[in-house]
Design a protein around this nucleic acid. Sequence first.
DNA 1: GTAAAATGCTGGACGATCTCGACCGAAATC
DNA 2: GATTTCGGTCGAGATCGTCCAGCATTTTAC
Lengths: 159, 159
Amino acid sequence: MLDDLDRNLLEILVKDARTSLKDLAAQVGLSSPSVSERLRRLEERGVIRAFTVDIDPLALGYTLQAIVRIRPLPGKLHIVQKLIEDIPEFGECDKVTGDDCFVARLFVRSIGDLDGILDRIADKAETSTAIIKAQPIRRRPPPLDAASPRDRAKALQAI
Amino acid sequence: MLDDLDRNLLEILVKDARTSLKDLAAQVGLSSPSVSERLRRLEERGVIRAFTVDIDPLALGYTLQAIVRIRPLPGKLHIVQKLIEDIPEFGECDKVTGDDCFVARLFVRSIGDLDGILDRIADKAETSTAIIKAQPIRRRPPPLDAASPRDRAKALQAI
DNA sequence: GTAAAATGCTGGACGATCTCGACCGAAATC
DNA sequence: GATTTCGGTCGAGATCGTCCAGCATTTTAC
């Protein structure tokens, strides 16, 4: 599906999405029209969902992040989901198996804001909140190479 | 700190980080040298952490995502953190308050891989895993405008 | 209050980059 | 073995980015 050149391009773009076609071409050993065409197809196929910018929330005044686990009360699932989606401070939300129905990331400017937002959900769901103290791994894509974890472990041993 | 033009530029770039300077300039009503200078300063100040690309994990064969809560055994905190950082399938990890020390996102290609990875942590930490069934909100930045939630609520009422 | 300096913008020229079309070669298809 | 398809290169013309000079406005200094 993806060949080495595609993965190579993606790896470069993950680090800098504004790399020029010319530079990309030079780094992977193709001409720029070819790179252009490959990017077009990666977007068309949905491999590349978007070129975007990673903004420091702190620069926007969001000094606090929290992980909120949300368990809607019986019959309230859809209302709660809609509510979460409509609160822009939720920067991420996953619907998961298990007792907690949703796990979401919340950006807030103060503890007061955190309280205010959770209050809006309080009568429709049980929530449990964990404040983020540090981010050992900031968002990164999974490995682009085709190797499975077992293969990788083997490769490491071979050294 | 950030003025309206900066926020405007960021909003456009969040949707498409490869927008040309010329287009950016036209959309915010500046000349392209001015836009270029503003972007340079946004990067310099760390507001823009990176221009990057959002890749569909499915296109790389990662058919499964999970949220893993990790509680290292006494004395194992640092070893566990290092371990997590070194496993590239962890696509995100936050250190949080509360009983669970870490909350992490895991990309895997199969249930077998999931099991294999969790096994590598099993003797150093307790984990509890929730499989992601859907993603109501995919990663998005917090609101760029300066309004607090209270202000926003007021503004909505005023309509 | 005013002069000086600093800041941030514009416009135009020049060089770099992108895009388009024509063409080519290898691999798959018939 | 001929033909089609696919992915690539090259070069020309169009587009874009960067640099520089100049200008207006605000800030600083005296």
